[in-house]
């Protein structure tokens, strides 16, 4: 279909974008446009104005500090996938970015757009949760950081306030004795995650688990951390047996989505299978 009529304007800086957002009631930010434009073409979304932020080049940077990788909100999935910085310091993120959608989506879609949209089946939410990322936000009252675990509130609902823009996502660099992996079970039609599990583990010099985080996407109305799994693993050697025991029954079917692509019971089961696969690989990397 043809979208409803809308105004279009370009912002050349974050401040300009914030000012435009402030001045229009029903404005939407346009970055890669790979969720917004299809929704508009189906006439499910009807913004009066699109503020195109895709030209704000400083938001597309990927940089490294000693302890973190800073991914600009406008970094495309392809840029994340191919970034040498990301590959070196947070390889799982590059791997996951390479599995999003298809080449067209990866060349246009952005990390900030994906997180702000908060599709319950998007991949990045699982990653930011497992990797304990912080989401940097600019707004009318200045900038602030939102921890990943406070960010996803509900279906397409985040902690972002009206008039705010994601500017950067900060991922702690993976330490020498940590490892992370992402395992996704894709919807065969949409290729979105039916269940995607990102796992991060850290071990001490004896191979004992000193920390674990498991981020789950696709399974419920929003991405969440499976804290029970992390709790079960801490202080244990990461073996096939301890991992299997930790993931068994990790998800409550009652809290799972139930739709055409998977029943809640199957989703709960897939959480365990994908978590096992992600944790097994993450543990191997941590100990490797």
């Amino acid at each position: 279909m043809t979208p409803y009529a809308f105004e279009y304007t370009r912002a050349s800086s974050v401040d300009e974008a914030l000012a435009l957002l402030d001045g229009h009631d029903n404005a939407k930010l346009l970055a890669g446009g790979h969720s917004l434009i299809p929704a508009m073409k189906l006439r499910l979304s009807n913004p009066s104005m699109l503020i195109d932020v895709s030209g704000i080049s400083e938001l597309a940077q990927i940089t490294a500090s000693e302890t973190a990788v800073h991914v600009g909100a406008l970094a495309t999935h392809r840029a994340v996938e191919t970034s040498e910085i990301v590959q070196a310091k947070c390889g799982v993120l590059a791997e996951a970015a390479g599995g999003i959608g298809d080449p067209q989506v990866r060349n246009k879609g952005t990390i900030g757009g994906s997180l702000a949209h908060a599709d319950p089946a998007a991949d990045y939410p699982a990653l930011v949760l497992a990797l304990n990322a912080a989401i940097k936000v600019a707004g009318p009252s200045g900038t602030h950081l939102i921890p990943a675990h406070d960010f996803f509130l509900n279906l397409f609902k985040t902690a972002l306030q009206d008039g705010e823009i994601i500017t950067e996502v900060i991922f702690p660099a993976l330490s020498a004795r940590s490892g992370a992996a992402y395992a996704k079970f894709s919807n065969p039609a949409s290729k979105y995650a039916v269940v995607g599990v990102a796992a991060w583990v850290e071990v001490d010099e004896h191979g004992m688990c000193t920390g674990a985080r498991v981020g789950v996407t696709g399974a419920a109305s929003h991405a969440f951390r499976a804290s029970n799994v992390a709790f079960d693993l801490s202080g244990k050697h990461l073996t096939a047996e301890t991992i299997a025991a930790a993931v068994a029954g990790m998800a409550d079917a009652h809290e799972m989505l139930n739709d055409l692509s998977a029943s809640s019971e199957y989703r709960a089961h897939l959480c365990s299978v994908m978590a096992q696969r992600a944790l097994t690989e993450a543990a191997a990397r941590a100990m490797g």
Binding site: N187, P188, A189, S190, Y192, L260, S261
Partner: peptide, 23 residues
């Protein structure tokens, strides 16, 4: 393996896009 049109009991086609109908 993949394809199947699904109508609900009211006759709404639930597999009305390529997001839901797998080819």
């Amino acid at each position: 393996l993949f394809e199947g049109a699904v109508y609900d009991e009211d006759g709404q086609l639930l597999t009305g896009t390529f997001m839901d109908y797998t080819i």
